[in-house]
């Protein structure tokens, strides 16, 4: 019997909640929490968030952004931008008949050495010749290669979110042919340089005890507050009732009987 009891015992590790924080280009916004047995397991996890919630701009509700956990700190996990994506529902609304849709996909590098896959989408005002589309496609490639190559990864992300790249691309394309919509449908990070890659911390981590300490610290505070407030309310209520009620009653009561007495006199007289 004793042996059976030993077999049924299983080692279950307690999971820890790790707070995920967006990169500084997104204002270090809260992305959520991940439950992990060991905080080191959080590295490499992906989180997707809507750009509207991060920037508080309702115009950007059709864009999703993905982040990857890169580093662990004492209180939170640091993330890095991984993907920018226009949702298919918003693209579907853009495309109309009697207009040309131009798609492209290519790889280009930033000055930091981050390899990106860019997928631009261009919609012309009217139906146009194939030669025009070809020229537009060349212009898109040359513009993005030149402008992305000059900038660092952080600068690129900043301009992507604020739509500066899209606006300047539209301006340059409209010299060739009037363009209705010019967007980056997708921007995916294909590979990071070694300096940007996430590193797993060595030795003991301080995240685990820090999170465990917080939970018991919160509960006693709540109980203390309740115990302090309740007696205070009990003491106040009777005091307020005793002070207010008699004054109100004294003022109202004499007013009512006067009216009644008048009506009663009139009725008697009649």
């Amino acid at each position: 019997m004793a042996k059976k009891v030993k077999k049924s015992q299983s080692k279950i590790k307690k999971k820890v909640w790790v707070k995920l924080v967006a990169p500084p280009a997104f204002g270090k916004a809260d992305l959520g929490e991940a439950s992990v047995e060991d905080p080191r397991q959080a590295i490499g996890k992906t989180v997707t968030a809507n750009l509207m919630t991060l920037t508080r701009d309702p115009k950007k509700q059709g864009i999703n952004v993905r982040f990857i956990v890169r580093k662990m700190h004492e209180s939170h996990a640091e993330t890095i931008f991984n993907r920018y994506r226009l949702m298919p529902a918003s693209i579907k609304r853009m495309v109309r008949r009697n207009k040309n849709r131009l798609d492209h996909s290519f790889k280009c590098k930033t000055s930091d050495g981050v390899l990106l896959i860019l997928k631009p989408i261009v919609l012309t005002m009217n139906k146009c010749n194939r030669s025009v589309i070809q020229a537009l496609r060349k212009k898109v490639v040359s513009f993005l290669f030149y402008n992305v190559g000059k900038k660092t990864f952080d600068q690129f992300v900043q301009e992507l979110i604020t739509a500066k790249i899209q606006i300047s691309l539209k301006r340059s394309l409209s010299k060739l042919y009037p363009v209705a919509i010019c967007e980056l449908r997708e921007a995916i990070v294909s590979s990071y340089p070694d300096t940007m890659k996430g590193t797993k911390p060595e030795g003991k981590l301080t995240v685990k005890p820090a999170v465990e300490e917080k939970k018991p610290a919160v509960k006693p505070v709540k109980t203390e507050v309740k115990t302090e407030e309740k007696p205070a309310k009990v003491e106040e209520k009777p005091a307020a009732k005793t002070e207010e009620k008699p004054i109100a009653k004294v003022e109202e009561k004499p007013a009512k009987p006067v009216k009644k007495s008048v009506t009663s006199k009139k009725s008697k007289e009649e």
């Binding site: 280009c108 590098k109 000055s111 060349k138 490639v141 040359s142 513009f143 290669f145 030149y146 190559g149 000059k150």
Partner: peptide, 10 residues
Amino acid sequence: CIGCRACEVQ
């Protein structure tokens, strides 16, 4: 060559 100048920048 489409003249994108990626090689020049990179």
